[in-house]
Simulated assay, not measured.
Amino acid sequence: MTSRTFNTPTTPATKDEWLTPPDIIRALGEFDLDPCAPVKRPWDMANNHYSIADNGMELPWFGRVWLNPPYGDETFKWISRGAAHGNAMCLIFARTETKGFHNEVWNKADAIFFFKGRLKFFHVNGREADGAANAPSCIVAYGPSNVEALRSASAKGLLRGRFIPLKSATPPALSPPAMHDDPLPATLPFADFSQHSAFLPGDIPLFRA
Rank of each mutant, 00 (worst) to 15 (best):
L67Y: 12
L28P: 04
S80V: 02
L188H: 05
F207R: 09
P185W: 09
S194W: 01
W18F: 07
T20C: 14
R64I: 09
M1G: 13
P171I: 14
W43L: 06
S3L: 14
F115A: 06
L67S: 14
D23G: 15
P21T: 12
E128R: 08
C90W: 00
E148Y: 15
A88G: 07
K116W: 10
A169W: 02
N55E: 13
R127G: 12
Y50Q: 07
S137A: 12
D73Q: 14
I25H: 07
P70C: 13
G202L: 10
W106I: 14
A198T: 15
D73T: 15
N47S: 03
M1K: 13
P172I: 03
K77N: 12
T20I: 14
N7Y: 05
W61E: 10
I164T: 09
L159K: 13
F31A: 03
M57E: 13
S197Y: 05
G202M: 07
K99H: 11
P136G: 05
N107A: 09
W66M: 08
P205L: 05
A153R: 00
D110S: 03
V147P: 01
I52V: 14
P185R: 07
I25K: 05
F93H: 11
D181N: 15
L119N: 12
P185C: 05
A149W: 02
G100L: 06
T98E: 11
G126K: 11
K108M: 06
A169Y: 01
S168I: 07
H102M: 08
